[in-house]
Design a protein around this nucleic acid. Structure first.
Length: 331
DNA sequence: ATTAGGG
DNA sequence: CCCTAAT
């Protein structure tokens, strides 16, 4: 079982870029005050996020630690939260205007397509105490057939996926390369922490724009989640801010590491050649490679303050910094 | 056709 | 990730 992977602070900021022990593990930096943008918050609690799954891949962390790029990232955040601290059966709250639904979700991790969270099974009718408020849960019955499997299936094209795609029961799968089916977890997580975490994540999208550290990054209208008749959790706007992008996929850990490794050997530049020789099958264009390098460099160079860093292994970080400072690959 | 840099 | 001026 994988140990603690990261901590999320909901309180005031502390240092950024905390480097854990160099144990070769994929790590992610502490995300500073993502929820209140640095304003003084009475809520100083620290929530430990951990994975209950053995083969937890870095991809899953990206969404959380890169911060929302658009509304769709909430799906990832959601999934991350659930995967990490909750599990499929953990009560999850969806705030809809003034009403709060308690649901259980199935996550479809978006890649080139836009993903969505679909309710897998309605939660048992009960009332939860949350943040001092009484949250009414809708009365629904959990059906056996709709229950999540006891194992998690990673990677699109699995048997479950195919079955569902061919118009079976269940919910229609969006076409995507990867999908995650949340597993039932043996142990129910601490309710308070999870619920608060989820709700706070939803609050991550403020009324007008979202914050990155203490500064406002965009003026985006608040996304209101809603459940349609299919019990599908949807956003009102399917395209979002970056919906026009041809490739709206986020870089994976493997991609970033490969890019760094290649640059470390071949040097920075000659992006077209780099693309043809090392990323010929990748969706990334030469310009994408160039852009990513620029962003990585910026992220790990200088006094990057309050910046949400992409999860990378320490070795890659060193290479980035060495390349950035034009140091030779000696040592 | 590519790249650098701003958006 | 896109756009575009500059090369």
């Amino acid at each position: 079982m994988r140990a603690a992977a990261a901590a999320i602070e909901t309180g005031a900021s502390s240092g950024t870029g905390n480097f854990p022990a160099d144990d070769g593990e994929i790590w992610a930096p502490v995300l500073s005050d993502p929820l209140d943008g640095g304003s003084t918050s009475p809520n100083q609690e620290e929530i430990e996020v951990y994975s209950a799954y053995v083969d937890y891949d870095a991809m899953d962390f990206q969404a959380v630690f890169e911060g929302p790029q658009d509304e769709h990232d909430l799906n990832k955040l959601f999934g991350c939260a659930m995967l990490n601290s909750c599990g499929a059966r953990c009560p999850t709250y969806i705030k809809e205007a003034n009403f709060t639904h308690e649901i259980e979700c199935e996550l479809y991790s978006p890649t080139s397509d836009h993903g969505m969270i679909q309710t897998l099974a309605p939660a048992s009718p009960e009332t939860k105490e949350m943040k001092g408020r009484r949250i009414p849960a809708p009365a629904m019955v959990l059906s056996e057939k709709e229950e999540a499997p006891a194992t998690m299936a990673l990677g699109g094209g699995g048997e479950e996926d195919k079955k569902r795609k061919q118009g079976g029961k269940g919910h229609p799968l969006p076409s995507h390369r990867r999908s995650m089916r949340l597993a039932l977890t043996a142990t129910r997580p601490e309710e308070g922490a999870c619920a608060n975490f989820i709700v706070d994540l939803l609050d991550y999208l403020p009324k007008s724009g979202w914050r990155h550290g203490s500064r406002m990054r965009s003026t985006r209208k608040r996304a209101i989640w809603s459940l349609n008749t299919e019990k599908t959790l949807l956003l009102p706007n399917h395209l979002g801010k970056y919906g026009h992008r041809k490739n709206n996929d986020h870089w994976t850990y493997e991609e970033m590491k490969k890019l760094v490794d290649v640059l470390y050997i071949s040097g920075v530049g000659n992006w077209t050649k780099l693309k043809n020789e090392n990323f010929s099958t990748s969706v990334r264009t030469a310009m994408h490679l160039k852009d990513k390098w620029r962003n990585l460099k910026k992220a790990y160079t200088g006094n990057a303050k309050k910046r949400i860093l992409p999860a990378l292994d320490k070795d890659s970080v060193k290479k980035i910094q060495k390349l950035a400072s034009k140091m030779k690959p000696h040592l």
